[in-house]
């Protein structure tokens, strides 16, 4: 709980400082355990290879489907990354410790989301290299490509963090989390795939509209997370 005596700017700064602490903790945890690097990245590459098996080694089909396949691989990896990110909070009463740590809930949310976003960002870089290697897809609008990745990743990390903490301490979380999360992020899949299609086919004008949708999605769920995280953290 922030002290009510602290001025508004101080509160925002305090929230950001808390977020930095939580994000740094998660990244340090990853640096030491290397779960994302040693399991999630190979998994994402494996998904790309399996898509290749499913769709024929015919490169034209794969190239045409590249945007959708890329973002499907990201979505599946997001579910796994989320389970990992919140499993570390669920064990040994860490959630209680986090609750009593005096960190601002909004800060914890932003920190978890930022940590997750960095993990997803690394994954997307690997996947981008993967699709150009395996599917021979070369992007034409690099700016749109990067902007789409950033907006979609922030959206996924924000809504993912809300659902991650929601299902963290539950026994059925492994099956419940995908059911809750994937329909909610359907707009991200649509918008990011369309923006990528525009970027790969050099018609980036149409793609910026989809980027706009991604940005709206990201800011909306970031706002929901900032305001709802206190409630979610309260009792778990």
């Amino acid at each position: 709980m922030p002290d009510p005596a602290i001025p508004a700017e101080g509160t925002v700064a305090a929230v950001l400082a808390d977020a930095r602490l939580v994000a740094a903790k998660d990244l340090r945890l990853e640096w030491r355990s290397r779960v994302v690097l040693s399991q999630l990245v190979p998994f994402a590459i494996l998904v790309l290879v399996l898509f290749g098996f499913a769709l024929d080694p015919d490169r034209t089909a794969l190239q045409k489907a590249t945007p959708g396949l890329f973002w499907l691989a990201v979505l599946f990896s997001t579910v796994l990354a989320l389970q990992r990110a919140f499993a570390v909070e669920a064990t040994d009463g860490v959630t209680d410790a986090l609750r009593m740590s005096g960190l601002d809930p909004a800060g914890i949310f932003l920190g978890k989301a930022a940590g997750l976003a960095v993990h997803l960002g690394v994954l997307e870089v690997v996947l981008l290299a993967g699709v150009s290697l395996f599917y021979g897809a070369t992007p034409h609008g690099p700016l749109l490509l990067v902007a789409t990745c950033v907006a979609a990743t922030v959206g996924l990390a924000a809504v993912g963090s809300v659902y991650g903490i929601l299902s963290a301490a539950m026994r059925v979380r492994d099956s419940l989390l995908p059911l809750l999360l994937l329909p909610i992020v359907a707009p991200v899949l649509i918008a990011a795939s369309q923006a990528f299609t525009a970027a790969y086919e050099q018609t980036s004008g149409a793609g910026w509209r989809w980027f706009g949708l991604l940005a709206v999605f990201a800011s909306l769920y970031a706002a929901i997370g900032i305001f709802a995280f206190e409630q979610l953290l309260e009792e778990s």
Binding site: L166, I190, L232
Partner: peptide
Amino acid sequence: AIVGVVAFVNVPIVHYSV
């Protein structure tokens, strides 16, 4: 309650994107 709110907020987003 949180999911109930999020799910409803999501309805127009899905509608427009689709």
